[in-house]
Deep mutational scan, measured.
Amino acid sequence: NKFNKELQWATWEILNLPNLNEEQVKAFIDSLKDDPSQSANLLAEAKKLNDAQA
């Protein structure tokens, strides 16, 4: 289903952001699991944090 694909993509993207630490990655992944419908928003937040920590 649509959410599953978005969830998988967002998870992969977050796991490959170079500037997030392990705790941050885990928090984002946990949030994705809690509410897959928010995957696009969570991914945007993760990318923002990644850029801020570059």
Rank of each mutant, 00 (worst) to 15 (best):
N16T: 09
N50W: 01
D35E: 07
N19T: 03
K26G: 05
Q24M: 04
N16L: 06
I14N: 01
L49H: 03
E45H: 09
A52K: 10
L20V: 01
K2N: 15
E22Q: 11
E23S: 11
D35H: 08
K47I: 08
A10P: 01
L42M: 06
S39D: 02
A54H: 10
A40K: 14
L42E: 01
Q8F: 08
A54N: 07
A46T: 01
F28D: 00
D30F: 14
Q8T: 07
F28Q: 00
A52V: 10
E13K: 14
L20I: 04
W12N: 05
K33T: 11
L17S: 02
S39N: 06
E22S: 12
P18I: 10
P36N: 03
K26D: 07
D34F: 11
E6G: 04
E45A: 14
N21Q: 07
A46F: 02
N1P: 14
Q8S: 05
D35A: 07
Q38G: 07
N50L: 01
L17N: 01
P18G: 07
L7H: 03
A54L: 09
W9A: 12
K47A: 05
A40V: 09
K47S: 06
L32D: 00
N1M: 03
A40R: 15
S37V: 05
W9Q: 14
F3Q: 15
N1V: 04
N16S: 12
F3H: 14
K26Q: 09
A54F: 10
L20F: 01
S39V: 15
S39W: 15
D35M: 07
L17G: 00
A54P: 06
W9Y: 12
I29H: 03
K2Y: 07
L7G: 04
L32F: 03
I29P: 00
K48N: 08
E6D: 07
D34V: 13
K5I: 05
L7N: 03
A52R: 13
W12S: 06
L20Y: 00
A46I: 02
L17H: 02
K5H: 09
T11I: 14
A10H: 05
A40Q: 09
K47V: 07
D34S: 13
Q8H: 04
L32I: 06
L17V: 00
D30A: 15
F3K: 09
L7F: 07
Q24S: 02
D34Y: 11
K33E: 10
N50P: 00
N21A: 09
K5Q: 14
A10K: 03
K2Q: 15
K33G: 07
E13N: 08
D35T: 07
A40P: 06
K5N: 11
D35Y: 08
L15Y: 11
K48T: 08
L32R: 00
Q24H: 03
K33S: 09
E45R: 15
E6S: 04
A10S: 04
K33Y: 15
W12R: 05
A46M: 02
P36R: 02
A54V: 08
W9D: 04
N21I: 07
E13M: 15
T11E: 04
N1Y: 01
E22V: 11
D30Q: 15
N16Y: 04
D51S: 09
A27T: 12
D51A: 13
S31D: 07
L17Y: 04
L15W: 10
V25N: 02
K33M: 14
D30I: 14
A27F: 14
N16M: 12
E23I: 10
S37T: 11
L32Q: 01
N4S: 06
F28E: 00
K5A: 10
K2R: 09
L42K: 06
V25H: 05
L43R: 04
L49R: 04
D30V: 13
T11N: 04
E6V: 11
Q24D: 03
N1I: 05
N4Y: 13
K48D: 05
V25M: 13
L49Q: 06
S37L: 06
L20R: 00
P18D: 05
A40I: 09
Q24W: 02
I29L: 11
K5T: 09
K2P: 11
L20K: 00
Q53D: 03
D34M: 14
Q8G: 04
E22A: 13
W12K: 04
A44S: 11
D35N: 09
E45Q: 15
N4V: 06
A52M: 12
W9F: 11
A44V: 11
K26W: 13
N19P: 00
N50E: 01
D51W: 13
K48E: 08
I29W: 03
A52Q: 13
S37R: 08
D51E: 13
A10G: 03
N4E: 15
P18T: 10
E6R: 04
A44H: 12
K26L: 10
N50Y: 01
A44L: 12
K47G: 04
A27G: 12
Q53G: 05
D35K: 07
E6T: 06
S31E: 08
D34W: 12
I29E: 02
S39L: 14
A54G: 12
A52E: 11
W12L: 05
A44N: 09
V25Y: 05
D30L: 15
Q8M: 13
N19I: 01
K5M: 03
K48P: 00
L49W: 04
K47L: 09
A46P: 00
P36M: 06
N50I: 01
N41H: 12
N21W: 06
N21Y: 11
L42F: 09
L42S: 02
L7D: 04
N1E: 12
E13Q: 15
V25S: 08
N19W: 13
A27M: 13
